[in-house]
Every structure is written in C-alpha cells, then in structure tokens.
Amino acid sequence: MRQLIFAFCIGLFPFAANAVEPDEMLADPVLEQRAREISKDLRCVVCQNQDIDSSNAGVARDLRLLVRERLVTGDSDAEVIEYIRARYGDYVLLKPPLEPATYALWFAPIAFVLIGVFVGGGVLMSRRKQEAFEDLGAEDENTVSEILRQNEAGDAS
C-alpha cells in the first residue's frame, strides 16, 4: 500500500512541473507573487497562446527575469507592464487595452446582445399584439372575404 501511494505521488510530479524555475524566483514572497500575477498577463512572443508564466521559451524566461528585476528596483505593476509593452507592443498583453482601436472588440459583444434582445423582443411583442385582435373591422373583413372568394374561384377552375 505504501508503495502504491509513493508511486502515485511520483506520478504527480509532472503536473507540478512549472515553467518558473527555482533560480528565477525572488526571495521576497510578496514580490514573487506580484511577479507571477504580472507574468500571467503577458503573452509569450514565441508560443503565442501562452502567458510567459507558463512558457518554457527562452525569451519568456528572459522576460520573467526582467519583470522580477523591475519589481526589485521598485517599479509598480503597471510600470513593469508598460516597460515591456513599450518594447513588444500591445500584442504582448493578453488582455487588450481599452482604446479607440479596440472599441469594437470590447463593445461588439454587448452590442450584439442588445441587438438580439431588441429584435427578439420586438418580434415577440408584435406577435402578442396580433393575438389580441379579435375583430378585424369591416374593411379588413371585406378584403378577407374577397380574397377567400377569389381563392375558391381559382381552386374550382
């Protein structure tokens, strides 16, 4: 039994493996935590769908070290991110900034939902209104009977 548990624990090792290597980590746990959080918002420029926190690429490692270095010199989180953004552009941010060029990206989903609610609601409302009619009124009644008569005449021929 003990051997089984041991084997299970060994089996878990690969999942515990992390891109952040021990020699990169800062001694100060608060700073290290901030570095981890910042790294999760920065895109690796080599493996482009990964954040640098989980990427094993060389450049990602360099950027992680850079983030920590800036933190140690007393930069705020925003300053660190701005430093890297100045070199790699908006592309390096996993969360795109809110600016005129990205308005469509940020507001299109809301706009589509609103359009959907508006159109769908409009259709439902107009349908409900039609059900409320009981009397067509004299003029419409005449039109309908006229059409029906024409249809019957058409069927007969």
Binding site: V46, V59, D62, L66, R87, G89
Partner: peptide, 13 residues
C-alpha cells in the same frame, strides 16, 4: 550574452 539587448529590440527569436 544576457539577451537583454534582444528584449530592447523586441526580439522574438
């Protein structure tokens, strides 16, 4: 050697 200048240039590889 450190790759730091590479970062200054926005190098990806």
């Amino acid at each position: 050697l450190s790759g730091r200048t590479g970062i200054e240039w926005g190098l990806s590889g």
